[in-house]
Each structure stands twice: as C-alpha cells, then as structure tokens.
C-alpha cells in the first residue's frame, strides 16, 4: 500500500488560515490502513482545526467527508455538488488523491494534509516499512523476494557494500542489511548459487528516466 504520515497541524493551518469554509476529505484506502487519512483521522483533524479557529476567534466552517478512493473518477464525483462551496479542500489522501481531486475541481485549492512516504507494509500496529520503489522492472525473482532497490540504503544490486556489521546496515544499527537478508533467504531456498551471478546493469528507463510513467492495458480498456 501507499504509506503516508500526518502533516504537522501547524503546516496545515498555515495553508488554510485565510479560508472560512473548508472540507477535510479523507480516503478509505491505503491512508486509512496506515492511519493517516481515513475517516478517523479526518474527524481528529477537523476537531483540532475547529478548536484552533475558535481560540483565534475566527468563524470557520470545517466539514468532513471520506470517499472510498480519491484516485478514481467515480468516487470523486460524489462531491461534485458540494466541492465548489468550499474555499479549500484539505485532502488526507496520498499525493495521487490530492492531485486527482485538484484536477477534477479546478476552482478550489486542494491542500495536502499528509506526507506521502513510500510503498510499504504494516509490520505491527503503528510501524510501516518500505518494501517497493516502483522501479518498473521487478527483480525480486532473482533476490529471494527481498528488494535491494527499496531496502538497501545504497540500492546496490550485486551483493553487500561491505559496510554492514552483524547483519545491520552501516547507516542505522536498527536497519537490516538488505543483502544479508537476501543471502539468508537464498540459502534457505537452496539457491545460493544465484547469488554468484552478476546482475545485468539495471535499466532505469522503467523508473523515472523519460518522465512520468503510464501503464496502458488495451485488453481492459472500454
């Protein structure tokens, strides 16, 4: 999922302080799972903002809404009849949702309420860690299902850098060395011979070389 983290409320206030009618717009997908931008967080942020403006003696209307997704036209259409009534929308969706909302409602400023961080997984409640950088050319089959692009600090593709100590990365003693994990996993799979193979030089053109990417699936297009 896309993992996001809440923005400091001071930053959000800085962006909306001149408006008087504001919609806090949550998303029921990834940001709900990582507890940054779902219905619950919409309620918490709206309450905090109401309290702030009340203390400031400002009459500001803060409304709440949470859509199933903000990255789909279909769900964003649900606020078609009300969007223009607001001076601003604070979107608690990921960067995709913020942009899609802004594209759909040109006349209303759409302000991000979260920082979109990475593609990751829930390790335990309250701990999400990165697993994928969406490089566009998955090499997990060669690396025992552990991604050196997202999990190695140096993103190196042919074995450890030599800086790890006791299986931990040189940049942070709490961070596993991705290549130690890969080697352990390949060993467990009886495929350590794979480790001896030098990877072909990675084609980053599927990453961001060449600009924003598209996936076109003619077989599912209407």
């Amino acid at each position: 999922m896309i993992v996001a983290d809440k923005k400091p409320i001071e930053e959000i206030i800085g962006e909306i302080k001149d408006y008087t009618t504001i919609l806090i717009l949550g998303c029921n997908e990834c940001v709900t799972v990582c507890e940054a931008g779902g219905k619950k967080e919409v309620g918490i942020l709206a309450s905090a903002l109401r309290m702030y403006f009340l203390n400031q003696g400002k009459d500001v209307t803060i409304d709440e809404r949470t859509l199933e997704r903000q990255c789909d036209h279909e769900y964003l259409e649900e606020i078609r009849d009300v969007a223009d009534q607001y001076d601003a929308i604070v979107s608690l969706a990921c960067g995709v949702g913020v942009q899609f909302t802004a594209e759909k409602y040109h006349a209303v400023p759409v302000i991000p309420g979260v920082n979109t961080c990475f593609l990751g997984a829930t390790e335990t409640r309250g701990l999400w860690t990165e697993r994928c950088q969406a490089c566009g050319e998955c090499i997990l089959a060669r690396t025992g299902g552990i991604c050196p692009v997202s999990r190695c600090a140096k993103r190196i593709l042919n074995g450890p850098c030599g800086g790890a100590s006791n299986g931990k990365c040189e940049i942070n003693k709490e961070l596993d060395c991705a290549w130690q994990l890969i080697i352990d996993r390949l060993k467990a799979l009886g495929r350590l011979d794979d480790y001896e193979n030098i990877s072909p030089i990675k084609d980053w053109s599927t990453d961001r070389a060449g600009g924003p990417r598209r996936v076109v699936r003619e077989d599912v297009q209407l």
Binding site: W204, S205, D207, R208, A209
Partner: peptide
Amino acid sequence: EDPSFGDHQQAKA
C-alpha cells in the same frame, strides 16, 4: 536534457 535523449537511455537521471 533527460537521459532518454541520449545514448544511455537506461541511465537514471
């Protein structure tokens, strides 16, 4: 210019 213009199109900018 973006690497896609050149002769190392797989390079990461």
